[in-house]
């Protein structure tokens, strides 16, 4: 646990944790609103958007990519609406068609363009580049209090931390309206709550989480973290408040455990190469969910009526 850890492992672990938490927090409400696949959807749509942003701007900087991601999300929503209306296909299928074809178009666009000089390829989109988000400037624990080194932290870390803080603050402020409108939309409307606005804001926050996390860790973690930690937490508790905190705990646990296992697990088994951290983090989150399904306190909680 020395310089190596600070330089090569600390920031990827932190980024993994923050990305997981940023997705798990809105995921709690998406699952309760039966919109769990939104994270899946957004992360697929984001990919062609990011590619287009890159192709237009020629850089991998954040602004054009986020702009591209947002416009892709809007295009996707319009496409889904059109397919639903004119194709007479149910909403779920319309979403599936849109997302897979948009993702595929992103793959083709990327293939046709010259991206040899930058870190942008299909594998990157799926797995992210967590392992490469290292802290070059750090040379020991004291770097944590040196402004010069801190200024060189990977910008993904700062962005994700900001997103997490924003989500936590919004959750704190709008906890009651969010809870009431998620539980009973009709009742919420009669008490004067703007349920449509609340729903839109939740979708927007989820999109921001997904785009930010996607940029840092790829879509596998995004998809897993929108669903697995909240679903695990739901099996542990019967109270929404505790569920949200449990989901943060499970998301962090998956990220830390997944990163360590990916890096050191193969070594322990006597194999030289490490495995993909993003893949391992997502697998661990699924594994924890599996354990909760088997042993969770409230796994059989309803007397189906």
């Amino acid at each position: 646990m020395g310089v190596d850890f600070i330089q090569f492992s600390l920031t990827p672990i932190l980024i993994g944790v923050l990305a997981s938490v940023a997705c798990a927090l809105p995921g709690n409400f998406l699952i309760l609103r039966q919109q769990a696949l939104l994270g899946d959807a957004v992360s697929h749509v984001v990919f062609p958007g990011i590619v287009m942003g890159f192709l237009v701007s020629g850089t991998v900087s954040a602004t054009p990519m986020v702009m591209g991601a947002i416009s892709a999300a809007i295009i996707a929503v319009v496409c889904i609406e059109i397919i639903k209306r004119f194709g007479r296909i149910d909403p779920g299928a319309a979403m599936g068609i849109t997302f897979s074809s948009l993702f595929a178009s992103g793959v083709i666009a990327l293939e046709q363009s010259d991206t040899t000089t930058v870190h942008l390829d299909v594998e990157h989109a799926l797995m992210g580049n967590l392992e490469s988000l290292i802290w070059y400037e750090a040379n020991g624990w004291h770097s944590l209090i040196e402004p010069a080194s801190l200024a060189q932290l990977p910008h993904e870390l700062n962005r994700l931390a900001l997103v997490c803080i924003i989500i936590l603050v919004l959750l704190f402020i709008f906890w009651r309206p969010l809870k009431i409108s998620t539980f009973d939309e009709y009742f919420a409307r009669t008490t004067g709550l703007p349920t449509i606005t609340i729903s839109l804001c939740l979708t927007m926050i989820s999109t921001i989480s997904a785009v930010t996390a996607f940029d840092a860790v790829g879509c596998i973690i995004v998809i897993a973290m929108f669903i697995c930690p909240p679903a695990t937490a739901r099996l542990i508790t019967n109270r929404l408040y505790f569920q949200v905190w449990w989901s943060v705990g499970f998301a962090s646990l998956s990220a830390v455990l997944g990163y360590i296992l990916a890096g050191y697990g193969p070594l322990w088994l006597g194999v030289e190469n490490s495995v993909s951290a993003a893949g391992m983090i997502a697998t661990i989150s699924g594994f924890i969910l599996g354990l909760a399904c088997l042993f969770g306190q409230y796994r059989a909680r309803t007397n189906c009526s």
Partner: peptide, 22 residues
């Protein structure tokens, strides 16, 4: 969806929202 993570008391307290606000 009655599977929502809330207690009986939680649901009744939702009726106080207009009085309590945020």
């Amino acid at each position: 969806d009655w599977d929502f993570p809330a207690s009986v008391l939680d649901v009744v307290k939702m009726g106080l929202y207009r009085e309590l606000g945020l």
